[in-house]
Structures are given as structure tokens and as C-alpha cells.
């Protein structure tokens, strides 16, 4: 795994060529969501998976990035694309003092502090109506009608994130990060400035998450505090993406993002309309009811997936790939 796997290069090439073949907006939208989650999941992963500083409040950075972009429009009349340049920086500026204050806290305390940061920002953005528009949110008209430009921008960012994460992890910093995760005291005794490197990993993580937030604002055209600072939809989802794919692996979050976005859409749309189609064809009520059950189950499936993954694949799909392959392979001759 020292070099970039061929599979990754092929995947990126395939993704880059995809819009030429498949210009369907709906699939492009799903792919954009998937790529945004690759960015967020990888960002969370560099801080939590590699450095061991588990954050329960990554929505704080995401929302800060999104609001940076939104506030450019609301107050300056500038284009929200400026947010792409400054959203990440703003998230970093939020993260650094937070890290400086909270990194001395260890383990669960740090996780809780990040959760509190997330909630505080959500409430503040709600209350500061004059500054943020409160719950009325910020709305812009997206620049492009076509999805294709967004798709390439997001793809570019996702690839950039993965490349940066990978090169950091393989650099000296990466070893410092992992040593902090494995044994902070030992790392310190080796002369590693643990607080400094925790902050480095936080800064990288916040930067990419914030940029993803700014991208979200540009792409979606609408944000409000409960959307972009959502504990459930971003902070927890970031964790799920990473643990399902594989914490502390470079491609884990990408795999996790694919699975989570795919599952959500699969269930929300009732298996892409399978049940409705069968129901219409057969005229049977059972399928319509089955569709409702499936649709209502979409978050439940997430929950069960988390429980199952942690229980049986604690290192995620990528991290435990050997285990999966072995068990699938073993069953192959019989099947």
C-alpha cells in the first residue's frame, strides 16, 4: 500500500470521464454528494483516525465554511465563490484557538468539547439574526444550471483532499500523528510536541471541512443554522462515513461515503422506485406498504449498520478488508 493503488487512479479516471457518458443530473447530484462526503470524511479521519482526536462536532467547521461563503453574499454582495477561498481559512481560524484551549483535554473530554462547540455555534447562528439571517437562512442562486461544473470542482477538491491527506500521512507529520494516537505519553517522551501536531492535524481537518462547507453553499444555494451546523446530519454522519469505511485508512472515508450516500438514497427513494414500480405493475398494496416501511427505515439502517460495523468490522470495510475477503472467499466454492 505504499504507492497510490492502481484502483484509486482508475476510479478517479472513471469519475472524471463519467459526465461525458452519463449526463443525468440526478446521478451527478448523488455523485457530488458522495464527493463532498469524501472530503468531509477524509478530513475527519486525519484528525480522529490518524491523530486519535475524536471530534463529535465537525459540523462546526463545515457550517463555518458554509456561512463564510453565505456572509460574503449577504453582507458584501460578493460572489459566494469567495467562500471557497476563505471558508477553509475561517474554519481553521475557528479550529486553532479551540484546539489550543481544548487539546490539553484528553479522550472523551475533547470529544465533548467539540460537540459543545458545534451546538454553541448552531445556537449563535440562530440568534444572531441581523448577522446571519437567523433561521431564515441565506439563499443564493447557483451560478451554473448544469451540474457538470460543480461535479468537476467537487471531484477536483476531493482528489486534492485525498492527495494532501495521503502525502501528509506519509510524511514525518503522519508518523507524529499516529504516534500521538498510539501513545501520547510515549510520543511526548520522544520529544514530539504533541499539542503542536494535534493542532496541525486539526488545522488541516478544519480547512478541508470548511472548504467543503463553502462548496455546499455554492452548490445548494441555501443554508440555515440547523442545516449546516446539524449535529446529526454532519457531525455524526462524518463519524459514520469514516468508521464504516475504515478509520485511519486513506481510502476508507471514500468507501464509507459511497456506502452511506448510496444507502440513504436507496432507502429514501424506496430502492430507486422498485417498490412503486412493482406496486404499479401488480396493483398490489403490499408493495406500496413495503415502500413506506423501507422509506421510514432509512435512518434505522444507518444505526444498524454502525452497530454491525463496530461489532464485526471495527476497523471498517477498508481496514478489515482482509477479513472480509477471507470470509467471502471461503464461502465461494460452496456457492
Amino acid at each position: 500500500m505504499k504507492k497510490t493503488p492502481v484502483a484509486a487512479i482508475v476510479a478517479v479516471a472513471a469519475l472524471a470521464l463519467l459526465p461525458l457518458v452519463l449526463a443525468d443530473n440526478y446521478f451527478l447530484h448523488l455523485l457530488i454528494l458522495f464527493l463532498i462526503w469524501v472530503i468531509i470524511g477524509s478530513s475527519w479521519n486525519i484528525m480522529a483516525g490518524y491523530t486519535g482526536q475524536v471530534s463529535f462536532g465537525h459540523a462546526a467547521f463545515f457550517g463555518t465554511g458554509a456561512y463564510t461563503a453565505g456572509l460574503f453574499v449577504m453582507h458584501g454582495g460578493f460572489s459566494a465563490w469567495w467562500g471557497m477561498a476563505f471558508g477553509g481559512v475561517a474554519a481553521m481560524l475557528l479550529g486553532l484557538p479551540f484546539g489550543a484551549i481544548c487539546f490539553p483535554l484528553r479522550g472523551a473530554y475533547f470529544a465533548l468539547a467539540s460537540l459543545a462547540l458545534n451546538l454553541i455555534l448552531m445556537h449563535l447562528a440562530t440568534i444572531a439574526e441581523r448577522f446571519t439571517g437567523g433561521m431564515q437562512g441565506i439563499m443564493i442562486m447557483p451560478t451554473f444550471v448544469s451540474k457538470v461544473p460543480y461535479y468537476y470542482i467537487t471531484l477536483g477538491m476531493a482528489v486534492a483532499t485525498l492527495v494532501v491527506v495521503q502525502s501528509i500521512i506519509r510524511s514525518k507529520w503522519g508518523y507524529y500523528f499516529v504516534s500521538i494516537r498510539e501513545d501520547q505519553d510515549a510520543a511526548e517522551s520522544l520529544g514530539i510536541d504533541t499539542n503542536r501536531y494535534k493542532n496541525v492535524s486539526l488545522a488541516v481537518s478544519a480547512f478541508f471541512t470548511g472548504t467543503a462547507g463553502a462548496l455546499y453553499m455554492n452548490y445548494m444555494g441555501f443554508i440555515d443554522p440547523h442545516v449546516v451546523f446539524s449535529l446529526h446530519d454532519y457531525s455524526v454522519m462524518a463519524i459514520l462515513v469514516a468508521i464504516v469505511g475504515g478509520v485511519g485508512t486513506i481510502y476508507g472515508p471514500a468507501v464509507g461515503a459511497f456506502i452511506m450516500v448510496g444507502l440513504q438514497e436507496l432507502f429514501r427513494s424506496g430502492f430507486f422506485g422498485l417498490f412503486k414500480y412493482l406496486g404499479d405493475r401488480t396493483g398490489s398494496e403490499t408493495f406500496t406498504q413495503a415502500m413506506e416501511v423501507v422509506q421510514h427505515a432509512h435512518v434505522l439502517v444507518f444505526g444498524i449498520l454502525v452497530v454491525v460495523v463496530i461489532l464485526f468490522l471495527p476497523n471498517g470495510i477498508v481496514g478489515d478488508w482482509g477479513k472480509i475477503r477471507k470470509s467471502v472467499f471461503r464461502s465461494k466454492p460452496a456457492a
Binding site: A48, G49, G52, V54, G107, A108, A111, R181, I239, I243, V247, G248, V306, I310, P314, N315, G319
Partner: peptide, 8 residues
């Protein structure tokens, strides 16, 4: 990898 698995 993560001791926080129980929390997750």
C-alpha cells in the same frame, strides 16, 4: 485503532 469505539 480508536479507543472511542464504545462511544461510537
Amino acid at each position: 485503532i480508536l479507543p472511542e469505539n464504545q462511544v461510537l
